[in-house]
Every structure is written in C-alpha cells, then in structure tokens.
Amino acid sequence: MHDVIAQGGLPFRATRFWFSLANEPPENCKKNENGVPVDPILAQAIPSPSEALVTSWELRDPLGESSHTIFEHAVRQYHSRVLVRATGQCFLFCRHCFRRSLLPSERSFMDSKAIKALAAYLAVHQEVREVLISGGDPLTAPDASLASLFEAVRSVPRPILIRLCTRTPVVLPQRLTSDLIALLSKMRPLQMVLHINHPKELSQEFMEKAELLLRAGIPLHSQTVLLRGINDAASVLIELFSALNRAGIHPYYLFQGDLAAGTAHFRVPLSKGLALYENLRKELSGLELPRYAVDAPGGGGKIYLPEGIAERRADLWILRAPDGSLHEYPEEG
C-alpha cells in the first residue's frame, strides 16, 4: 500500500496491485502538459499540479450533500433512498473524486452511535426502500464493522435493499475473502455497485472475484466516470461496457464529471460527452449501454442525458432535474 497524507486537498493513496495494472512504473512515468500521467491507471492515482487549479464553477460539495444530511454519516436526497457515507477511507484515492474535499474529515468508520441512529431512522421512515452504503470505500473496514452496519439495516422488520458502493474488488481484489463474500451473501437483498473506468481495470483477479460474488447471489453493476485522456474515446468505452456485460456486470451509469474543486483537467466538455454517447447508442446493445447522467450542481439530483437538457446558451447548458428545477452546467474547453 502506498499511503501519503498530503498537506491540503485529497491525500495520495494507492495499492501495489493497482499500480501493477499500469504499463509503466509510477516513479518515472510519462506525463502530459498538465503534469497528469498518460497511462490511464496512473492518471487516476497520482496527484498532479493541476489539482491546485480551481475554477469559478467548482464547488467543495458539488452534489450538495451537506444540505441533505439528516444526521452524521447519513444523507437523504431521494424519497425512497438513504445514502450512508460509512467512512472517508479508500484503498485508492481517485484524483477525480467528487468527495475529495469531504473525505479527510471522515477518515474513520462510523461508530455504534451513528449505526444505531440509522436503524432508528429506518424503523420510522417506512418509505425508505434502499440504503446505499458508500464512502470513501466501506470495504476498507474490517468484516466485524461491516457486519454491525449491515445487521443494523437488517434489524428493521421490512425488506430493505442494501446497495454497496465500492471500488475494492478492482483496486484490491484480495480483500474479497471467502468470509467477506459469505457475509455479503448472508445480508441479501444486497447488490454491489462497482466504480470501473477503463478496460485495464478488468484484471484476471478482479474477474475471478466478480464471478464468486455472482455465484453467491450478489448482483453486480458498474458506474463509470467520463474522464478526459482516460476513457473519452468510443473504442475504450465500447470495450469496457461490452466486457462488463459478458462478465455478468450490468453497465449502470456513465457519469459526466462533477464540478469538484481541482478536477477541471479531467472533465470532458459536455458537448463532446453527448456526441460520444450518441456514438455508443449506435454501437452498443441495450444490455451493454449505461445511462448517461450528471448530478445537478449544488444538489438537484441525477439528470439523465441528453433528455435532461433544457437548452444551451453559448458556453452554458441549462439542465432540467426530475422535479422540474433548472440547473446550470458549463461547457468547458
């Protein structure tokens, strides 16, 4: 594990396994004019000087989660779902992370008080059908801590779907032990959403763990962030989504980049993203094609693209959220 705590901003952390997926060593890798590694694996892990550049559009909390926080670690933005940020820790701190400004203050796993508060909240709010357990990455926690959280959800006397959001099977597949897989299977209904951005991430070790999870009755979905210089080519995304589909992993979302501070060098212009997605719609089957979406800046929720576009005004896109509210998203060069 490579683990360095930087002064300010998002810390650097990555696994040796992650770096083994790259075509060159991180110490002397080739970089572009922005100081970002050219290799798609290294580009997602190694800090660059570009992260210090913050545009006028960028936000500390681009999804507006703070305005939807119901108690410590818990966010409720949608009627039927509660998001639990169980920890701010990750095995890999992705340089494009939209929670990059929030994670350092939430490093430890949620304590028993917060877990009890979650169970009490779910017991009262019968309309909640899903609990999204995210972070950071919840699988950085020990099995016992995860079991306490899962059991708190299962203590509520109605079926609630647990949606486990993680990058661990890709970044550190060795963490998926037989004991952990058995725990996840025991806590069904439970589905796993995996963060996967590039075909290079589909290692043999990951594919073997994915097969074990599927055999244990755990459905797998993927979400991908559209990233400049990493996967913003139709050929790369076609290879990724078709390979995921063949492996039994549902390509769920392709996300337009959030307006997180210090991530402008990763964002693909929305006009290019729309053209790219139109190409994907021609080339991929209905099973292979994810939904293209963007989180409305400041907390308007997910907006599907292109149907959520209300209009374009020069270098500004006007997006319509499901509740009818309008939100601005810049067309960046």
Rank of each mutant, 00 (worst) to 15 (best):
S145P: 05
S145N: 14
L146I: 11
L146R: 12
A147H: 14
A147S: 14
S148E: 11
F150K: 14
F150N: 13
E151I: 03
A152M: 02
V153F: 00
V153Q: 12
R154S: 03
S155H: 06
S155M: 04
S155W: 05
V156C: 01
V156N: 01
V156A: 01
V156T: 01
P157R: 01
P157H: 01
R158K: 07
R158C: 02
I160S: 06
L161H: 09
L161C: 10
L161Y: 00
I162F: 00
I162V: 13
I162R: 07
R163W: 00
R163P: 08
L164S: 08
L164P: 10
L164Q: 10
C165N: 15
R167M: 03
T168V: 15
P169M: 07
P169W: 02
P169L: 06
V170W: 00
V170T: 14
V171S: 06
V171A: 06
V171Q: 09
P173A: 07
P173W: 03
Q174A: 13
Q174G: 10
R175F: 02
L176K: 12
T177L: 05
S178Y: 00
S178G: 02
S178T: 06
D179W: 01
D179Y: 02
L180N: 10
L180D: 07
I181N: 06
A182H: 10
L183D: 09
L183R: 13
L183I: 08
L183F: 02
L183W: 03
L184Y: 05
S185F: 01
S185W: 02
M187A: 10
R188T: 11
R188F: 00
P189D: 09
P189R: 13
P189C: 06
P189Y: 04
L190E: 11
Q191E: 12
Q191M: 09
Q191Y: 00
M192Y: 00
V193D: 03
L194M: 10
L194V: 13
H195V: 04
H195Y: 09
I196L: 06
I196P: 13
N197G: 03
H198K: 14
H198A: 06
P199Y: 03
P199D: 06
P199M: 04
E201D: 11
L202Y: 04
L202S: 09
L202P: 12
L202Q: 12
S203C: 08
S203W: 05
S203H: 10
E205T: 12
F206N: 12
F206M: 09
F206L: 14
F206R: 13
E208Y: 05
K209V: 11
K209Q: 14
A210W: 10
A210G: 13
E211M: 08
L212H: 13
L212F: 03
L212E: 15
L213G: 08
L213T: 12
L213F: 04
L214Y: 02
L214H: 10
